[in-house]
Structure formats: structure tokens, C-alpha cells
Computed example of a mutant assay.
Amino acid sequence: MGKMFKSTALLVILGCCPVVAVCEAELMVFPAKGQTPQQQSADEQECRNWAINQSGVDPARLSAPASSANQQNSRPVLRGAAKGAAVGGLGGSLGGEFGKGAAAGAAVGGLVGGMQNRRQQQATATTDQQAQQIYNQQIDSYNRAYSACLEGKGYTVK
């Protein structure tokens, strides 16, 4: 049993399980008591419904979380550089060195904007990871219920 859940979890992490048919395709169901294909089909449908009721998860309505970590945003860096240049230029103009002040301000502002961008990316990655964990738990709950039902009807599930 442990092996089945590890492989199912791996498949879910890889994004191979957005709908019921794909999740169940990864579970191998063997009619251990000589059930006919028609009986197996009926039992599988009954177990799908039972698993949905028991787990509260309907994989057909559950979508894998989309990752937003790959969407890099350079706006905080540019915004920081622009603000820094304005402030630095203003400070430099007071001392007669507008260009130097603007350049220094842009550099510092760009660094600050870059730090803000990295913090945002870290927060996004954490949110994505939490969403993936919740999704994995939901699919795992459904698969455990589905497998238990089929095993109770005399099937071997791996």
C-alpha cells in the first residue's frame, strides 16, 4: 500500500493528475475474485461515488494549482531605480551634481526594488507550495477512499 501512495503522490506533484480518469489510470485494479469487466466497471463507478462522498473531494472538479513562481516581475526593480534616480537627482542638484546624484540614487533604488522583488517571489513560492500540498492531500484522500472501496469489493489495487 505505501508504494502505491508514494507513486501517486509523485504523479500528483508532477501535475499528471488533473482529472479523475488520469488519477485512476495510475491505480492498477485487478479483479482478484474473477469479477467480469462489466462488474468491474460498475464497481469502479460505485467506488468513485463512494470515495467522493467519503473524502469530500471530486477530482473531476479539482484543478491542479497553477504555479505563478515563473512569472518574474521586473517592475519593482525599475520602480525602485526610477524613484532612487529622482531622489538622488534632487539631492545631487542641491550640491550641483544632478547626474551623479541621479545615478547613485538609481543604483540604490534598483537594489531596494530588487530586494522587494525577491521577497515577493519568495512569498509567491510559499503560496504555490502550500496550494500544491493541499491539492496533493485532497487527491491522496480521494485515492485512499477509492482504493479502500475497491479492496472491500475483492479487487487488488496497486
Rank of each mutant, 00 (worst) to 15 (best):
G152Y: 02
Q129I: 01
V57C: 01
G91P: 06
Q35T: 02
S41T: 00
E151N: 07
L62M: 06
K100Q: 12
S68Q: 15
Q45E: 11
Q129C: 04
Q40F: 14
N143S: 11
F30Y: 12
Q138M: 12
V29N: 07
A104D: 08
V12W: 08
A42T: 06
Q45G: 04
M4A: 10
A145I: 04
V108E: 09
R119W: 09
L10Q: 13
R75Y: 14
K6S: 04
K158R: 13
Y142W: 14
Q120H: 09
G152M: 03
Q71H: 09
E26P: 01
Y142I: 00
G34W: 12
G96W: 12
P31C: 14
G95L: 03
Q35R: 02
E26M: 09
Y135L: 06
V108Q: 07
A145P: 05
A102P: 01
A86R: 09
T126G: 04
W50D: 14
M115I: 13
L10K: 14
Q138L: 08
V22K: 06
A107C: 03
A86M: 10
S93I: 04
N117T: 15
V77G: 03
C23W: 05
Y146P: 00
A42N: 03
V157K: 12
T127I: 12
R79Y: 11
P59W: 00
S63L: 00
L27T: 05
G105P: 14
S55E: 11
N49C: 07
G99D: 15
G109E: 15
S55C: 07
G56C: 03
A60D: 15
R118C: 07
R118E: 09
A145H: 05
V157T: 09
C17G: 05
G96T: 06
V87G: 11
G105E: 14
R118P: 02
I139S: 01
I134F: 12
M1I: 06
G2A: 08
Y146F: 06
G95W: 01
F5R: 03
A9L: 12
K158N: 13
S147W: 11
E24R: 07
Y135N: 08
E97N: 11
L150D: 10
E46G: 00
A131T: 10
S147M: 12
P31L: 13
R61F: 02
L94G: 09
A104W: 07
Y142R: 02
G15T: 03
G34P: 10
L11V: 07
V29K: 01
Y146A: 01
